[in-house]
Simulated assay, not measured.
Amino acid sequence: MMTYKTLTAGLLAASMLTAPAFADDMTMVKEVDVDVELEDLANANAAAHWTMIEDDLENAIVERLVGRTDDEGVRISIDIDEIELANTLQNAAGVADSSLSGRVKILSPNDNSKFETYDLSVAFDQAILFLPEGFDVTALTTDSKEYYDGMIAAFADHVVKRLDG
């Protein structure tokens, strides 16, 4: 009979053996740049509330790239073009969805297969996954730290997952 410790030890050993193989398939990154023109955003309240989004989104992406940086890596450029914040009443009524949208460009000076441009939009229903465990979603408002952090985390997560997809 296999015990929990035996199974865990086996999984750890297997992951250590396969980790270098996965490392070769990962896209390495040299630079991450996020640009937001706050005056172009669709929602004036969003522009006023989300003043640190450039730095926060860059940092969230870089945190997910630990061990994946290289001077020969790709450059990730993101132009956020819309932050649409539904107010709490709209969210409760399902009238409007909150979203964070932008154009993502992956550029490589060394590898012609590592070029990509795509539009990414993250709705709040995706950001719920990044809220603290046990957080009361019914108490959430668009101006709360948890809401902001969840939207940033969801966007960053999608960008990094798509690098190797």
Results as ranks from 00 to 15, higher is better:
Asn110Phe: 06
Thr27Asp: 14
Ile106Trp: 04
Lys114Pro: 08
Leu163Gly: 06
Val29Ser: 08
Phe155Val: 01
Ile61Tyr: 07
Ser108Val: 11
Leu7Ile: 04
Asp164Tyr: 12
Lys30Ser: 06
Met2Arg: 04
Ser99Ile: 05
Arg68Val: 02
Phe155Leu: 00
Arg64Val: 13
Leu41Phe: 08
Lys5Arg: 03
Asn112Lys: 07
Ile128His: 15
Ser99Cys: 03
Pro109Gly: 13
Ile128Lys: 14
Val34Asp: 13
Asp125Cys: 10
Leu65Ala: 05
Lys145Leu: 06
Phe22Met: 15
Val29Met: 07
Glu146Cys: 03
Thr8Met: 02
Glu116Pro: 13
Pro20Val: 01
Met26Gly: 06
Ala96Glu: 06
Thr141Asn: 07
Ala21Asp: 05
Asp40Leu: 02
Tyr148Asn: 06
Phe124Cys: 08
Thr27Ala: 15
Leu163Asn: 08
Glu54Phe: 13
Leu89Gly: 15
Ser15Phe: 05
Leu107Asn: 12
Asp55Glu: 13
Val36Gln: 04
Leu85Asn: 15
Thr18Phe: 04
Gly67Thr: 08
Ala21Val: 07
Gly73Phe: 05
Asp119Cys: 00
Leu38Glu: 12
Glu84Ser: 02
Val32Cys: 12
Leu100Ala: 02
Ser15Lys: 03
Ala19Thr: 02
Glu82Tyr: 00
Leu163Cys: 10
Met151Tyr: 00
Ala93Thr: 10
Asn45Ile: 13
Gly150Ile: 07
Leu41Ser: 11
Ser144Ala: 01
Asp97Cys: 03
Met28Cys: 02
Gly10Val: 14
His49Trp: 15
Asp33Arg: 03
Val66Tyr: 12
Val32Lys: 15
Asn91Tyr: 08
Asp149His: 03
Glu133Val: 12
Leu89Glu: 14
Glu146Gln: 12
Glu39Leu: 02
Ala92Cys: 12
Glu31Gly: 07
Asp24Glu: 09
Gly134Ser: 12
Asn43Phe: 06
Gly94His: 08
Leu57Gly: 13
Ala13Asn: 01
Glu54Met: 15
Ala21Ile: 05
Glu116Ile: 08
Glu72Ser: 06
Ser98Leu: 10
Asp40Thr: 03
Ala13Ser: 11
Ser108Leu: 07
Glu39Tyr: 05
Met52Leu: 05
Val62Ser: 01
Thr18Trp: 04
Ile76Asp: 02
Ser121Lys: 05
